[in-house]
């Protein structure tokens, strides 16, 4: 049976753009205001879940050819390596650094290394949440590792 859901598909195309923008805003605003890698990752995962709900898994994986399992592994790798890197410069584990730079458009900007750690957390959260949703929505007869 073919179900007519043109309105849902058209609306979701715009809404997903808004949700992805908001997730990046939440990720970047996590330094001084509520937000951060975990929350930004969760909101970005909810955008992917909305895509998987509206369209089907085949269409979305054609459009976004990302393996979410590899994405979570890469996120853990980035977080752990940016956490252990200060050990080699004689500083304690997980110590962070920041500095002020003159960027062309933004002017004087504060750049912190904690952003790399947060990016790893965001990638991990997106990968794990999308993986969980896809795993529990799969039928048990076509389960594959």
């Amino acid at each position: 049976m073919k179900i007519n859901d043109v309105i849902l598909k058209t609306v979701v195309k715009g809404v997903v753009l808004i949700i992805l923008t908001f997730s990046i805003y939440l990720f970047l605003s996590g330094h001084h205001t509520p937000g951060g890698g975990f929350i930004g990752g969760l909101v970005m995962a909810s955008a992917f879940v909305l895509l998987f709900l509206t369209y089907d898994v085949e269409t979305v994986s054609e459009g976004i050819p990302i393996s979410f399992k590899k994405m979570s592994a890469v996120g853990v790798l980035i977080s752990v390596s940016s956490a252990t890197a200060p050990i080699f410069w004689g500083e304690p584990f997980l110590s962070q650094n920041f500095g002020y730079f003159d960027l062309p458009i933004f002017g004087k900007t504060e750049l912190a290394t904690v952003t790399i750690f947060e990016a790893g957390i965001a990638l991990t959260v997106v990968g794990v949440v999308v993986n969980i949703i896809l795993s529990i929505s799969e039928g048990s007869n076509k389960w594959k590792a």
Partner: peptide, 19 residues
């Protein structure tokens, strides 16, 4: 959207196109 999909089709995330 998720609950409406569940009521209408019985499954939430589909795996291949049905048309």
């Amino acid at each position: 959207v998720g609950i409406a999909r569940f009521i209408e089709r019985g499954e939430i995330v589909e795996h291949e196109h049905d048309d």
